[in-house]
Write a protein that binds this DNA or RNA. Structure first.
Lengths: 306, 306
DNA sequence: CGATCTTACGGGATTCGTAAACATA
DNA sequence: TATGTTTACGAATCCCGTAAGATCG
């Protein structure tokens, strides 16, 4: 014989256990008394045993009913837990989103986005990995991250990539540097000055070198961290060229930043997710938030992504 | 919103998780594929979230579906356990019966009854207290015993008593004693001989004294245990008068037993149970077994209880 | 006799299966 | 195009509520 129990039956049973009256228990179950009676009877029929001894004056559990009571409470509790858990996930009252975001975005732009997200969905746990592009993508591939914002496009059978935003490059120099006030900026002017660069493995460095080709940069120093670059520039050791999204490193009274005149010198930021599985409700909400608040172009000709 | 989950839904869900195909899972659930589809949809609607990403080529759990899976398994398992437990109680495959039975019945008559009961319902645990009447009744009153077989009638608001059987008294003496072969037994003859008695607190003793009144018994010894009485009689120290149900103590080549000529000298054995609660399925089966196999009168004029 | 559970029964909602439409690899 | 899911829809079933009946204190 095939079991079929419903939480309605269990709740009705427990109501009757507590009320010891069909009439009152029926009210609690939002049923007419005869309908409630039938519900209890159906449960008893399925179990093959009377659960209550009832007369017109008393309703009492049988021995088998007492044996069932504890189990019924347990099952109902588990079922309610399962139900509310999923309902909370669905209502974004609970959940978890794992992001993998380039450090530049993670430090400058992301905090305000997450602040708004958290204000709206305070129950959703956030897990941010501020790592380089390759690691970002690897995290999505392995499932450790739901979404990644990375600088490299990947289109594999398992990963889906879409353009998230573009990021144009800016000159950074001391406020008293000639280039800070020079009316017209030309590439050749920039190439002439000593430059504080990121290390050759950085994607920023590669963008810059490709854009300036065939000119050669006058690299006087290579560093790993942009904050160090800022310190060096502030000390007057050279100038630098960095993407707009990292300019927050250079907000300092001694420093000036200027858009570069190169139209083609833009890097692209991609949003990466898995192709095979859909986003969780929480991750979907995050996706929408990210897209809604995506960084605007700081260059003169602003551009919106698709 | 009111939760309503059924085990059918959970089973359908888990079938689909395992089969990853609506068609196959529908077969497992004994439903047409569209009906199965509607069942999954109803579950998703109640939970407020998609549990599966499905295309015509693939069916995969969503993140929320994965979260629900573990809970669903747990709930279904608990529900099935609860269900089978009660079904087993109902089918007498499991359970427990606690009896409180007079030692005389417990030693002589009860074993064969319990042997048959156990052969028929091997899963039912038996708990026998072979104690005196007062203790028997107290055990039923306190709920430690489901049924009692005792020698005293009680009719309180909480206990129900019914006549179980009657037990007439027999003379016990040595085979070479004059009374063993005397054609006609008279009370006066018995009263004349030295008698081995149970102690004054025994119900048997009280029955005998009441029946023989106003004659006085020639008591030469008082004991507590019938097996000791048997030894004394066997040694030729005297005769005794005991209920038929205790005669198994006196089955010995040297001993003779004879029905007494006293019609009124019968003790009654009562079956006692609680008035307010019904018997468990197992206890009910035991009750029927006890009644079906109740001891027959050994006296010439046999009598059946109501 | 009164309070309470059960049975009877008509109406309505739910659920089923068949068949057609739709979608994806 | 073939496989597999969803939609459409008529039919059967289930479930509910009202009203009458039965039962116990």
């Amino acid at each position: 014989m095939q079991m079929n129990l419903s939480t309605r039956q269990l709740r009705a049973f427990l109501h009757l256990v507590e009320e010891r009256s069909f009439t009152r228990a029926a009210t609690l179950s939002h049923l007419s008394q005869p309908a409630f009676s039938a519900l209890i009877r159906s449960l008893e029929d399925e179990l093959g045993v009377r659960l209550f001894d009832r007369t017109t004056r008393s309703v009492e559990l049988t021995a088998e009913g007492r044996a069932f009571e504890a189990a019924a409470r347990r099952v109902l509790r588990e079922a309610e837990d399962a139900w509310t858990d999923v309902r909370q996930l669905a209502a974004r009252q609970r959940g978890r989103v794992a992001l993998a975001v380039l450090p530049a975005l993670a430090a400058g732009w992301l905090p305000q986005v997450l602040a708004r997200f958290h204000a709206q969905w305070p129950g959703i746990q956030l897990d941010v990995a501020d790592v380089l592009s390759e690691d970002c993508i690897e995290r999505v591939r392995s499932g450790r991250a739901d979404l990644a914002l990375a600088a490299t496009r990947v289109d594999t059978p398992e990963l889906r990539t879409e353009l998230f935003c573009t990021d144009d490059f800016h000159l950074v120099c001391r406020r008293d540097h000639p280039l800070a006030t020079q009316p017209q900026l030309r590439l050749a002017d920039i190439a002439a000055h000593p430059m504080i660069q990121l290390s050759r493995s950085s994607s920023v460095r590669q963008y810059v070198e490709a854009a300036i080709h065939p000119l050669q940069l006058n690299t006087m120093m290579e560093l790993d961290q942009l904050s160090t670059v800022a310190g060096m520039v502030r000390a007057g050791l050279g100038i630098s060229v960095v993407p707009a999204l990292t300019l927050f490193h250079f907000e300092h009274p001694q420093l000036a930043t200027r858009p570069l005149p190169l139209r083609g010198l833009k890097r692209q930021i991609f949003l990466v997710r898995r192709r095979d599985r859909s986003l969780s409700v929480a991750a979907q909400a995050m996706y929408e938030q990210l897209m809604a608040l995506r960084p605007r172009q700081t260059a003169p000709n602003r551009r919106r992504g698709a």
